[in-house]
Structures are given as C-alpha cells and as structure tokens.
Design a protein around this nucleic acid. Structure first.
Length: 222
DNA sequence: ACGGTCAACTTGCTGG
DNA sequence: CCAGCAAGTTGACCGT
C-alpha cells in the first residue's frame, strides 16, 4: 500500500476497491492531519495534488504515522475524506442527470474528479440513500399534516352528530328541484363534506387529493 | 462534550 | 459466481 498513484490519492485515503470484500485491509494513511500545519483537515484538499513539491513531503509523513496509529495487527482507523467543493458540484451535477452510473460513466467521472471509481460509486450510493431519506421525511410530514386535518375534521363531524342527536329531529324533507315534489328517501344521498341531506343530483362525493408522494399518482402532476 | 454529517464499510439480496 | 445495489452501521470530522 505504499505505492503512489499519479494523483497521490492512494496514500491519502482508503482504497476499498483494493481491499477486497474483507474490508479490513483498505485503510491507509491516517496522519495527514498531524503532518499538516494546524492539523485542520479543512485546509487540505486530500484529492488535489499538492502544488509544487509539497505533495511528496506530506505523503511521506503520512506513511510513517500510519504505522504508528495502526495497532499491532489491530483494526486501522480510516481517515474521513472531505470532497472538495468542485468535486461535490460535479458529482451533484451528474447525479441530477443520472442517479445511477454505468461502469464506464463511473470510471470517466472518477478520472475527471481524480477519485477512485469505488469512491464515486460509494458517493452515488450514499446520495441515493440521502435522496430516499429526504423523500421519506417529506412524506412523513405530509402524512402528519393529513392526520392533523383529518383529526380536526373528525372532531368537527362528531360534534355535529352530537348536536343532531340532541335535537332529535326527523329527517328533513327534500323537494325535487324539477317537480317541487318531496323526494323519496332512496333518492337522497349524504353530502360527504357538510353531512347535510341533498338530492342525488347534488354534488358528487369527492375523494381527497392523492398524496404528492403517492407512487400511483401520475408523474405529470409533478 | 455532544450531536449532526457523510465517506466508507458490511451484509444480504437480486439479476445476468 | 459475480457485479451492483439497498439498507444498515461505523467512525472521522465539524459546528455548537
């Protein structure tokens, strides 16, 4: 794992692609921070080749401390990579165009971003997961609001039922708008909104609007 | 100190 | 069998 890539990448981050599925062999240099002035990761873009001759110095230091931090045969701590603004921007851009990548696209993007294809793959996997989570949270909020308004509606209707029960009145007589004669009970229907008896020719029962997150909802509605 | 974020990892499943 | 994915987890880093 001491080999240097053209970009110096392998020395500054884990390369899971080379670690096989065992996972425990993919961790490498941990010590960039301690070798970097101030020890602040934010100051260092781990994926950009350092300008001038600085790159080699900082890479060499990393290898040494890696030995130190990795206990005797124990698990190695991985260093968290922070993608640069530009890398994030390009990843987001390609995600917007396509939220999955073919092998070719992945490799091309990796070269463009000076990352390992595995890192691009992981980024897309995590990005899809974040998108789904966000979507789920939005749906949860929507359903909560639905629940709130339906609860309120239910309370209101129950109050109305109680009021009507208290009044103990006979069902109202509804006249036909055409003949002005009383309609038979079978011709009557209940208005779902106000629960007042109307003629069957009255307003139709309307269903609540579909959730904007309902997968059955036509996509054109978006 | 602690919680949030997110890159990287493991595990299990599926399609080719 | 293998590659690719989703889901879940881990752990480094950061802001408060």
């Amino acid at each position: 794992m001491g080999a240097t890539s053209p970009s110096g990448l392998e020395l500054t981050m884990a390369v899971p692609g080379l670690s096989s599925s065992s996972g425990s062999e993919g961790f490498i240099c941990n010590s960039i921070i301690s070798n970097n002035s101030g020890g602040n990761m934010r100051d260092l873009d781990m994926n950009q080749p350092a300008s001038g001759g600085e790159e080699e110095d900082f890479l060499m230091g990393g290898v040494e401390e890696d030995e130190e931090e990795r206990g005797a045969g124990g698990p190695r701590r991985r260093k968290k990579l922070r993608l640069s603004k530009e890398q994030s921007r390009l990843l987001e851009e390609s995600f917007r165009l396509n939220n999955t990548l073919s092998t070719k696209q992945k490799e091309a993007l990796a070269i463009k971003l000076k990352l390992q294809p595995r890192q691009v793959e992981v980024w897309f996997q995590n990005r899809r997961a974040r998108t789904k989570l966000k979507h789920t949270e939005m749906e949860c909020e929507y359903l909560k609001r639905c629940f709130g308004s339906l609860t309120e509606e239910n309370r209101r209707l129950q109050r109305e039922v109680e009021e009507l029960r208290a009044m103990r009145v006979a069902p109202p007589t509804v006249l036909s708008p055409h003949t002005r004669q009383p309609l038979p009970a079978s011709a009557l229907t209940m208005c779902p909104r106000c629960e007042r008896v109307t003629a069957a020719t009255g307003p139709r029962i309307t269903r609540p609007a579909a959730s904007p997150f309902d997968p059955r909802r036509p996509s054109a509605a978006f």
